[in-house]
């Protein structure tokens, strides 16, 4: 009998844990594990429900599905609940340029804010669930909840900052510095989500990494092998383990501030 009770408790815990899981499309903002890094972070517990009321959760996107396309009308921003999204831009000569990767808890779609049309397209890199936040309703809510507006602009500033840092990275830095900067970025973003900052699976392909960093696939692979030989990290296909995070950070930002 005691054994049965224990089994029931474990099952109940598991159930409780599953209902809190951000991958569950039914989970509300108040229960979502990502609420400490997503929009609700700024909100009082009473206000989280107000935000929850405007959020739309639809079925997950499959790998390769578009979340929105360039030139679509800007209606909503999206919080990634699970999976990964890449943002791409089509250059003047018709080439695809990856402009960003969005991990769980991050907001995608703010590129449409300035002109009311999205300048990029967003594509799921794997099975991905998102929360859709209609922007007009978010603005209305921001007037009632100033802390939400503040947090939204903080997210926006982060987005602008990382865009500029990418442009700088691409214009000046060596292949090693570029790859190191991306790995350090994923590491610190994982840490914010309370995941391991030193062992993770790269959600994107080598081709996407190369495209994002302005390098060929071969160069990305060569740089990763070089880091492995130097003992900075170990690589097993998409699995990365950073052995010397300090060294990687130093490579990523050689003449920074």
């Amino acid at each position: 009998m005691p054994q049965l009770k224990e089994t029931a408790r474990v099952t109940m815990d598991k159930f409780a844990s599953d209902t809190r899981c951000h991958t569950n499309p039914q989970v509300s903002c108040g229960n979502c594990r990502l609420n400490s890094i997503c929009l609700p972070i700024s909100l009082h517990i009473d206000d989280i429900d107000k935000l929850d009321d405007i959020i739309q959760r639809s079925r997950p996107l499959q790998k390769g599905d578009y979340l929105y396309r360039a030139n679509d009308e800007f209606v909503s921003v999206f919080a990634v609940r699970s999976g990964t999204v890449k943002a791409i831009n089509i250059t003047n000569d018709g080439q695809e340029q990856v402009t960003g990767f969005y991990l769980p808890g991050e907001i995608v779609g703010m590129d449409g804010l300035a002109t009311n049309r999205h300048t990029n397209s967003a594509i799921a890199l794997e099975t991905t669930a998102v929360c859709e936040i209609p922007f007009t309703r978010l603005e209305e809510l921001s007037i009632k909840i100033p802390s939400l507006q503040r947090h939204f602009f903080q997210l926006m500033s982060k987005e602008i900052t990382s865009d500029q840092q990418l442009i700088t990275l691409l214009s000046k830095n060596s292949a090693e510095e570029r790859v190191a900067a991306l790995l350090v970025s994923i590491s610190s973003r994982n840490q914010r989500r309370q995941l391991s900052s030193t062992a993770f699976r790269l959600p994107m392909s080598r081709a996407d990494i190369g495209n994002y960093l302005g390098l060929t696939v071969e160069t990305v692979s060569r740089v990763l092998s070089r880091f492995q030989k130097q003992g900075v990290l170990t690589v097993d296909k998409k699995e990365i383990e950073i052995v010397e995070l300090g060294k990687l950070q130093a490579v990523a930002n050689p003449i920074g501030f």
Binding site: R150, H151, F153, Q154, L155, M156, S157, K158
Partner: peptide, 10 residues
């Protein structure tokens, strides 16, 4: 902060 600056520029 960064957010204040962004909001003011907006």
């Amino acid at each position: 902060g960064l957010g204040d600056l962004t909001a003011t520029m907006h």
